[in-house]
Simulated assay, not measured.
Amino acid sequence: MPGLDLTADAALLTQAICDVESVSGDERRIADLVEEAVRAVPHLVVRRYGDTVVARTELGRPTRVAIAGHIDTVPVNANLPTRFVEEDGVRTLVGRGTVDMKAGVAVQLKLAAEIAEPVPDVTWIWYDHEEVGEDLNGLNRLLREHPEELRADFAILGEPTAAGIEGGCNGNLRAEIRTFGKRAHSARGWVGVNAIHLAAPILDRLAAYEPRTVEVDGLVYREGLNAVGISGGIAGNVIPDECMVHVNHRFAPSRSAEEAVQHVREVFDGFDVRIVDLAAGARPGLDVPIARAFVDAVGAEPRAKYGWTDVARFSGLGVPAVNYGPGDPLLAHADDERVPVDQIHAVEAGLRAWLTGA
């Protein structure tokens, strides 16, 4: 197929990238196209790790920023190829990946090619397997095997933020809360102990729980503790001897991962608690000069990121990081994914102004 034209309008480049299907695990074609396009740019030093492409400026600037975006999507559901539509006077690109997050990737590729002498040195990163497990995530793999590629003074992840700035992110914890009973024939239920019935206090505690609203570095994060699944039972005529309530805790970045675990264990004191997934959050980091300059250049009022994103990987390295990209995050993964063209151009203008000092 033809290569990517990095001189094209960012919305047309978004369409071209989206129309290359790249569901997680099938990123090779889009990674090949990205690599081919940026290797043709003389001011970039390009390296490839699997299906992750890294392109760097090496100008000897006193500061370096990392700007990253993932090239994979969730599965397609009759929403490719993309198409432009006009909705209430707003031109919109509709289709898989337009929001999460190939519009952001298109802007990054265009600016990587066009800005030969940015004010800071820039490490551009386009990585694979973001939409699947932690062990496959391309940015996490880079962190493990080539951490030098992530060293920076500030980082931007092109996740959809409707062209606003979302600082840091909440942490994420998943736990399985179990109860144990004794099996018996349901016709003689009094002989057994029903583990599902024993789970009622778990649900009572969740229903009564009042999540915190926490201010961190000037941004307000909302926490949550919710049942997201429940399982138990063996057969229609057997008293169950085990029940599991799957609980998800979203916690403000002021709380460490270890403190979040302790909190969940306190809430469910007396029950069997098993932590099955844990990811620390990321503080906004907007108090450092380079971050303040970014906010001033973009001209948007920062807000908190409630979900977890890969900014936490940079934060874990001591690199302050924000989310900034086109598209409504509420439409990510939706079958009617769509991004306003104006938002693509707004993010392009904001990043360009900051990187060039214009």
Rank of each mutant, 00 (worst) to 15 (best):
107 V>R: 01
26 D>L: 11
288 V>A: 08
337 E>D: 06
56 R>Y: 03
174 R>A: 04
120 P>D: 01
141 R>L: 15
86 E>R: 07
333 H>Q: 02
222 R>N: 14
269 D>V: 10
69 G>W: 02
105 V>R: 09
109 L>Y: 14
354 W>N: 11
150 L>A: 00
303 R>C: 05
312 A>Y: 12
194 N>W: 10
241 D>A: 03
323 N>I: 02
119 V>E: 09
127 Y>D: 06
174 R>E: 13
131 E>N: 07
104 G>I: 10
244 M>C: 15
127 Y>V: 08
149 E>T: 08
189 G>Q: 12
268 F>N: 05
180 F>E: 04
349 A>W: 13
37 A>W: 10
59 L>E: 03
44 L>A: 04
278 L>H: 06
80 L>Y: 08
14 T>D: 14
293 A>F: 00
307 G>M: 12
231 S>C: 06
156 I>F: 02
274 R>V: 15
76 V>Y: 01
166 E>P: 02
56 R>T: 13
121 D>R: 05
162 A>N: 10
270 G>D: 13
264 V>A: 04
86 E>C: 04
319 V>Y: 06
351 L>V: 00
78 A>W: 09
137 N>K: 12
279 A>G: 06
16 A>R: 15
327 G>R: 00
197 H>T: 08
40 A>M: 02
303 R>S: 14
206 L>C: 04
259 E>D: 15
317 L>H: 08
255 R>N: 07
348 E>W: 00
352 R>G: 03
